[in-house]
């Protein structure tokens, strides 16, 4: 009888120990990886313009408000707010966030107050056009993607991890201002879009 009670107590103790250990894991994970979990930062500043090749697809050219061939400057993109995703075609976190970014795109296109005013482009850090295309097809990415094989845009935008999301707002003088900078993936598309909308101030302007 006594023995049996001890067994029950022991069993409960083991269960408690496991619970305690499980409780410790998430805390240590959060403390040690602030930069990669999901961390928006509101750093603002000038957004340096860069050039990209005009997309071959008619739909993408229309989306960006471009015509012709050759190259274009990011300042020419027809948008009040531009979301730039710096991704890596081969990066697992970018694979992870891809469906959520597609949700963000769909949400924008589905909102009359945002459609045509908020646009998205992706730039593939250290990725060749071929690799960017593999990424596009695998994840059915609906917005234009570009390659940055020679790392020039990576350097210009000071990208040190992928994915990084940059929110850019058009100024009246034609230059662009960065109002949002986030390192790491997210899993809540509507929260991400709300942040973009709120920090850009685009919602107020519409009223």
């Amino acid at each position: 009888m006594h023995k049996k009670n001890t067994a029950v107590i022991l069993c409960a103790a083991v269960a408690l120990l496991i619970l305690a250990c499980a409780g410790l894991y998430p805390r240590s994970a959060l403390v040690s990886s602030p930069a990669y979990a999901s961390e928006p930062s509101g750093t603002t500043g000038r957004f340096p313009a860069f050039t990209l090749p005009v997309p071959k697809s008619d739909a993408e050219r229309t989306y960006l408000g471009l015509s012709g061939t050759g190259t274009f400057s990011t300042t020419q993109i027809k948008a009040q707010v531009l979301i730039v995703e710096a991704f890596g075609a081969f990066c697992p976190h970018c694979h992870h966030v891809a469906p959520y970014m597609n949700q963000v795109y769909a949400a924008i296109e589905g909102r009359p107050d945002l459609k045509g005013r908020v646009k998205i482009i992706g730039v593939g850090m250290r990725s060749s056009p071929f690799e960017v295309n593999v990424f596009r097809e695998k994840f059915h990415v609906p917005f234009p993607l570009f390659a940055d094989k020679d790392m020039s845009i990576e350097k210009l935008l000071s990208i040190d991890t992928t994915p990084t999301f940059i929110g850019v707002k058009a100024r009246e003088d034609g230059s662009q201002e960065r109002f949002y900078f986030r390192r790491g993936f997210f899993e809540d598309a509507s929260q991400f879009l709300s942040e973009i909308v709120r920090l850009s101030g685009i919602a107020q302007e519409a009223k």
Partner: peptide, 10 residues
């Protein structure tokens, strides 16, 4: 907790 890959890069 272990199933998440959020710490991969770090």
């Amino acid at each position: 907790v272990h199933g998440q890959g959020a710490d991969f890069k770090k």
